[in-house]
Design a binder for these strands. Structure first.
Lengths: 244, 244
DNA sequence: ACAAAAGTGTTTTATTTACACCCATGT
DNA sequence: ACATGGGTGTAAATAAAACACTTTTGT
């Protein structure tokens, strides 16, 4: 085996971010309008190239998000979604992008600072709509991000990452309902989450509201995994028995 | 937003493979002995750099595995495990590696061809043992690979990917037992897998054996997801009640 | 008092677990 | 016949789904 390092091809390495939140009654994703070619004017995931050859991937992700949208990832949940490296995904040259997935609460300021004039929350359904054109292979990435979020909240407590620091059981239930696009029984849901050790920590405080009984306020508990998992209502089975 | 493409730092991009199998009563992983510095002589995951700037990541993974171990990934299950890019993970220079996870059946020839004099199956427990030194951050990658395999067989039918094309329920059960390192009840396991639509397809054939009733032979069915999931026996709870 | 939303109780159903028992084969 | 696994039956425990009902607030 010879040392082939002199002929190692180098590629441009980028990081992109699929930042999800639940707001205004919908699962939304942070997108930016591209200011340069290719795909100038099109919507894209925030992201960009490593700032220098020694920048860590996670650091690059935080930095790019802050630069482009003003959002600070510090303290929030983020994880690798996947690496997208099809040879022709960028018309200019070979670019491989490591994509991160983040879950942020609604109160994360939409575009609090930075080079953010073009950053905006977009409903996931809009981003995934056939008529919406996204730059590069970003539509595929958004699909993967949404799918990952949907399955991740089944077996982890990450749905709470979409909630403000203090939240009610109904807030949390709405997260599940909007991410899954499935209604859940409020009563069974309540028992399930309050009965799962470490998911919620009661603050003792209560919400006041226009009408109805006030709800107890909770904070995120120490548990990360859900045992047993939260079951997604099964989509109606491909029915073999004729229903006409 | 300016075009910064002229100062994009370039990194060397590698692919590595965590190829798992179940053989000789253990979960094993394919490792190679490094022929060059750094870490010459140490065990490492098979892998290497892209062959040219336009090679797709998946193609590079297949190619590297074939070159280094003679194993053909064609038709087998493989998926991205993650991308490892800590700035200092390679002492020579910045290298980012996209790691793939593959599940192969035992009959996949250990090192059927290629530059394979150093390739060998190593029990996962050995690879993860404190006393075993692996190149780069490969021990961490192996940990991630094993953990991914353990959870993946819970909710997918991928355990069958470790079996020969035709296998018995006991073969499949052994896969679960060895990957999880937990005994399973043969009777309940049988009912569970034979009752899960699309997991197994009966061939009609039977095994003959030295003793005991012959077992029915099955092939992998069309299902990919397990519904409901196969439950891993919960590890005995961190006992709060003193047992002295 | 009433509407509205929170939260508890109870029943039905599905799934898992545990284990008794029968089945089919080689020796 | 009997040892050795393969496979089925069944009952108890657990969890999910469905839904009646009580609680606590604002108006």
């Amino acid at each position: 085996m010879v040392d082939k390092s002199w002929k190692i091809p180098e590629v441009a390495l980028a990081v992109d971010l699929a930042v999800l939140t639940v707001r205004a009654g919908a699962l939304q994703i942070m997108l930016v309008e591209r200011g340069i070619e290719p795909y100038r004017g099109k919507l894209a995931l925030p992201g960009g190239f490593l700032s220098d050859v020694d920048e860590n991937l996670d650091d690059a992700a935080s930095r790019e998000l802050a630069e482009e949208t003003g959002l600070e990832l510090a303290g929030l949940h983020f994880e690798q979604l996947g690496t997208y490296g099809a040879a022709n995904r960028d018309p200019r040259r070979r670019v491989v992008t490591v994509c991160y997935l983040a879950f942020v609460p609604e109160l994360a300021s939409p575009t609090a600072g930075g080079d953010a004039r073009s950053a905006a929350w977009v409903p996931a359904t809009t981003a995934l709509d056939q008529r919406t054109e996204l730059a590069f292979d970003h539509k595929k990435i958004v699909e993967d991000a949404v799918e990952r979020a949907r399955s991740k909240i089944e077996y982890t407590t990450l749905a709470a990452a979409f909630c403000a620091p203090e939240f009610t059981v109904a807030d949390l239930r709405q997260v599940y309902e909007l991410v899954w696009d499935e209604p859940l029984d409020p009563r069974n849901f309540n028992r399930k989450v309050t009965g799962t050790e470490g998911f919620l920590v009661a603050t003792g405080a209560q919400t006041s509201r226009q009408s109805g009984r006030p709800a107890a306020l909770y904070r995120r508990g120490p548990a990360h995994l859900l045992h047993p998992a939260m079951l997604r209502p099964p989509p109606p089975k491909p029915d073999t028995t004729r229903t006409s």
